[in-house]
Nucleic acid binder design. Structure first.
Lengths: 280, 280
DNA sequence: GCCTAGGTCCCGTGG
DNA sequence: CCACGGGGCCTAGGC
């Protein structure tokens, strides 16, 4: 193992009221992959080495410390110095989290190349810093995180064979109607899902008891004006497609609907069916 | 400090090829808040105590280990055992990350109450586990993470006074047009932003050289059919609002537009103006 | 690669 | 509290 024990924090380590010394015990190789390796209060150089090693070995790497963040790509952003938690994933994703919010303050999607280096300090011209860069193309985007201080670096190896099982989606709602078409209206007959039109794919296409064409738009949650517009696009397109002057009925299926959307529905002569995705 | 050094991994610690001993050095209190405290390979009980302490002290807490995840709320999900990285934020947000994807596999938005406990094992009836729960109301939602094994617990304290400065937003694009209305069309005069209609707020409302009403919808990126529908809602609403039969012109301003959206624009007699948010 | 639409979307801003 | 629309949205599925 090339990374020896990190240096004990020197007398200039001003920020800590608890200090930790990490001691590496030589380990024996094993088939088990799960592992978390942590450096506390490393020097920037030690942090750099640990991060580079983690990236090389395709670990999930986290870095906590005082940093600035610059992003340039589809938009541009800057973030002045503060303490943040950075996660680099082996698939190329990068996340910068503050202590607030579900969303990262800055990020990079999967597919990026992560890079780490130490810079400055040697010549006294500039303060030393540890620089994380995540870059991708299509679109060209660059995320740059500069640490003036690193409090922790961790590398995580794990196994995760299982995938999320999710229910209560729009797909579940569709199945519910296909299983019991009368939930939409007595006499409704589904004929296709994802039926294509020049305006896009119709969630459920079918016929009513009188043989009239029916367009069904599904939403797993309460709907607003946008869902009505979407339904309108499909109904318009289908009427044009059938180019007979056959009236096409439009149904919006969702748990509930806002006032404004209700108004829009009525303006267009569409119908609303309150229905939720199955609970289970 | 009540949390003493974590136990040295016993001979049954089968999974590690590198093991770390964390030694606590008594520290001196300081005004500096930045701090990262880590337990490696703690027992479930030690992990529980450390997490509870971190939550109590409003730290950002991370836990890495083998866990299952159950979510129930707006939808429901289950995730079988695997190694994941969990982050609990002091604002009540919770994030469960696998080694893939920019998005967490499970989460809870800010505003939740986090809770941690140890369960089972004592009576031999069930395997011991560490249970993290994040609960909120409106809507009622519960996230439950059960660890059978914890490889690391960290608590982070930091200071972050600065906020993100972002440019290249729709707001920047709007300002660009307000500064130079001719970018839309010679003779265009903006009269209002966020002008309210029964269908919602118009990004920019104004008049053309001939005094005709103009509705401008802005998008910071390439637009598809949804943006055209949005413009249509506003134009329709405004025409009804003015209830004179005065024609209202609709403009879509964006860097570019898809084929289908181009077709929809022409169907509705709307105009497209290619324009990007300022780069700077 | 682009297009289209879903999402436990999150998030801010009004009402 | 709800409603509405933006977002560097991300992500999956087609083509």
């Amino acid at each position: 193992m090339e990374r020896a024990s990190p240096p004990v924090p020197g007398p200039d380590a001003f920020w800590s009221c608890e200090s930790y010394v990490v001691v590496v015990t030589p380990g024996t190789p094993t088939t088990q992959r799960s592992q978390a390796v942590t450096l506390e209060q490393p020097t920037l150089e030690a942090a750099c080495e640990a991060i580079a090693d983690g990236l090389e070995r395709e670990a999930l790497v986290t870095v906590f410390g005082r940093c600035t963040v610059d992003y340039d790509g589809r938009a541009s952003s800057t973030l002045e110095a503060g303490d943040r938690h950075v996660m680099l994933k082996p698939d190329g994703a990068a996340l910068v989290h503050t202590d607030e919010g579900q969303q990262p303050v800055n990020w990079q999607p999967p597919g990026c190349d992560h890079d780490v280096r130490c810079d400055g300090g040697a010549d006294g011209e500039s303060d030393p810093e540890l620089i994380l860069e995540s870059v991708r193309s299509t679109p060209d985007e660059r995320l740059c995180v500069r640490f003036e201080e690193v409090l922790q670096v961790s590398t995580f190896f794990g196994a995760d064979e299982n995938e999320l099982a999710l229910s209560g989606t729009e797909e579940d709602l569709r199945q519910r109607i296909l299983d019991e078409p009368a939930l939409l209206e007595t006499g409704f007959t589904p004929l296709a899902t994802e039926r294509d039109t020049p305006a896009g794919a119709i969630d459920i296409y079918g016929e009513d008891a009188a043989g009239r064409s029916v367009v069904v738009e599904l939403k797993r949650r309460r709907v607003g004006p946008d869902a009505v517009s979407q339904l309108r696009r499909y109904v318009d397109a289908l009427e044009r497609d059938l180019h007979a002057d056959a009236a096409v009925r439009g149904f919006l299926v969702a748990p509930s609907v806002t006032d404004r959307a209700t108004r829009l529905l009525s303006d267009h002569g569409f119908e609303f069916v309150p229905l939720e995705p199955p609970a289970e």
